[in-house]
């Protein structure tokens, strides 16, 4: 009986209205605490100064302000890094799964090195070590660093997605005489997409968030813009809340696009 009671309670707690109420209470408490704390510090809220960082009323009419430009910087950086990371991830995954002993070893070592170094340290290695050696500027170093770091993580997603396709698919494709490359391209990868979409989405979201780290070497993106504005205006609370909201809006849009894709690729077999 006690068990059934517990399960009933859990169901009530998991229902949508209850979740919404809990969410609202938690958010209220957080905001309340922040406001109280700020008040106690004698913080002077100046939200009215924020809109000018979105839209500026210049001589040539209304133009985009610093924050949208920072957002464009984040999106550009993340998109380039994502494209490269997918290439790197796929290559490393295929090497890991190949019959080449050297290929497998190289992939394994690459993965272990990259995923056991903090991203910040990796960025310093790319910028301060590889930068001068290969003549990379800060932007190229940032893109490559993010691509290598997330490519390594994505290789595990690719590997899992490929392994999730039934072995019989390989056998059927081999027995019509297809080459390994053809089997991957026409049979295995199209079927792995649905296994890879959910972890890939969280990886993209992680990547957008971790792209903020390049602000430490002053590459122009959302977080850097935030730091710059604050050093001019000291509006730290308003600006950081705003920047956080912009990141959230971006990643939520990406998540909902991904769940649309998931529904589209949900093949029955």
């Amino acid at each position: 009986m006690a068990r059934a009671g517990k399960r009933g309670l859990r169901r009530v707690m998991a229902s949508t209205p209850v979740s919404v109420v809990i969410y609202l209470i938690v958010m209220f408490l957080i905001v309340e605490t922040a406001l109280k704390g700020a008040e106690a510090m004698g913080y002077n809220w100046q939200w009215y100064r924020i809109p000018q960082y979105f839209f500026e009323d210049g001589d040539a009419g209304i133009v985009l302000g610093e924050i949208p430009w920072g957002l464009v910087g984040t999106i550009t950086l993340s998109t380039m890094a994502f494209a490269l990371a997918v290439g790197i991830g796929l290559l490393v995954a295929l090497l890991r799964l190949s019959d080449l002993i050297v290929g497998r070893a190289v992939a394994r070592v690459f993965l272990e090195i990259v995923r056991n170094i903090p991203l910040l340290v990796l960025l310093y290695v790319f910028y301060y070590v590889f930068g001068p050696i290969f003549g990379m500027d800060r932007y190229v170093a940032s893109v490559l660093c993010l691509a290598v770091f997330h490519g390594a993580l994505m290789s595990e997603i690719f590997r899992g997605g490929i392994a999730a396709v039934a072995l019989g698919q390989w056998e059927a494709a081999k027995s019509v005489g297809m080459s390994t490359a053809q089997i991957y391209r026409y049979i295995i990868l199209p079927q792995s997409v649905r296994f890879m979409l959910p972890p890939m989405t969280s990886e993209v979201v992680n990547m957008i968030k971790s792209s903020a780290i390049v602000s430490v070497i002053a590459v122009v993106e959302l977080t850097t813009v935030g730091r710059n504005i604050i050093s001019d205006t000291y509006l730290s609370f308003e600006i950081w809340f705003t920047i956080a909201a912009v990141y959230m809006a971006l990643t939520l849009i990406i998540s909902s696009f991904a769940s649309y894709l998931e529904r589209r690729y949900a093949v029955t077999d």
């Binding site: 698919q169 059927a172 079927q191 093949v267």
Partner: peptide
């Protein structure tokens, strides 16, 4: 030899217990 193997596979059809059709 991969070429030989693929040549043989093109001349030999195989039908499996579990069909193994390509579901996509």
């Amino acid at each position: 030899d991969t070429k030989d193997i693929r040549a043989v596979r093109q001349d030999v059809g195989m039908v499996f217990q579990q069909f193994n059709l390509f579901p996509h």
